[in-house]
């Protein structure tokens, strides 16, 4: 073996982020929470924030955030994470404060809290994982459930005449003056994961620079409740979900121009 070849095997190209706890994941095969967790942990490490961070966990599969991310975490009632984060941030403006919420939590029961936190320009970061269903409770219809999608409470498929339309939170929140950054990303390909990381970094920077509210919406999967194999679930994200929920940056404040 040449020296060059030896290098290839001793050079570290992958390591567990310091902020990611070394435990076995409980998430279902093909679920993207693990990817989002890793991106979150890597970004906390990137900015060296682990010891200055307070996270807020929501209700749903996402609540187990505190088993995986090695930072202080408060648990919020269903939908209230942006309000709890407000209370933490107002009490400790020097801390990095984020919430990690699912689509039932943020886009249904917690709509009021997230809109007003954004509108106040609350200097917090929201990571929003949209998998178009209530995962933990058994795959019920969510505010983000696609038209025609069958769930355990829309067994005939979501009908806009009865249930309205899937709600587009990244676009909606981008319209508010207090929002500094709003983007939608996916994590179904390596390229998308790289872009997602860039988006989360931007969102963190907004808070660090005290620019106001930042949110990154992740299009995610729930193979278990979708009744799909993990690979088919990826295809669904890349296909119909990305068509209805376009990826991209909806708002990016360039400077403190909000005064």
């Amino acid at each position: 073996m040449t020296d060059r070849g030896k290098d290839r095997f001793t050079k570290k190209v992958y390591a567990r982020p310091k902020s990611l706890v070394d435990v076995k994941s409980h998430f279902c095969p093909g679920c993207h929470h693990g990817i989002a967790h890793r991106i979150l942990a890597e970004t906390i490490d990137h900015f060296g924030l682990r010891e200055q961070t307070v996270g807020v966990a929501c209700v749903g599969c996402a609540v187990f955030l505190y088993d995986y991310i090695d930072v202080d975490v408060a648990e919020a009632p269903h939908g209230r994470a942006p309000a709890v984060a407000t209370g933490v941030k107002r009490a400790q403006p020097d801390k990095f404060v984020f919430t990690y919420q699912g689509d039932g939590d943020l886009a249904a029961i917690g709509t009021s809290e997230v809109i007003h936190a954004a509108n106040r320009g609350e200097n917090i970061t929201v990571l929003f994982v949209n998998n178009t269903t209530y995962g933990m409770t058994g795959g019920q219809m969510a505010p983000t459930t696609m038209l025609g999608q069958k769930t355990s409470t829309s067994p005939y498929g979501r009908d806009f005449r009865k249930d309205g339309y899937p709600i587009k939170m990244a676009e909606l929140l981008a319209t508010l003056e207090g929002t500094a950054y709003s983007a939608r990303v996916a994590t179904s390909t390596p390229a998308q994961i790289r872009k997602a990381k860039e988006a989360v970094k931007k969102a963190f920077e907004m808070q660090i620079k005290e620019m106001g509210f930042s949110i990154v919406e992740f299009l995610s999967t729930c193979p278990t409740n979708w009744g799909m194999k993990p690979l088919d679930a990826q295809k669904r994200v890349l296909g119909e979900m990305s068509e209805y929920f376009p990826l991209g940056v909806y708002k990016e404040r360039k400077q403190a121009d909000f005064l």
Binding site: V54, V56, A74, A76, P77, R80, A83, V84, A85, T86, G87, V88, K89, R90, A91, Q92, S112, E113, H116
Partner: peptide
């Protein structure tokens, strides 16, 4: 710090966050 909330639901959760701090 005084902050007027959008509802009492939000209020008590502001309280929760500051108390947790």
């Amino acid at each position: 710090t005084f902050l007027q909330a959008e509802s009492e639901v939000a209020t008590i959760n502001f309280i929760l966050g500051t108390s947790a701090s």
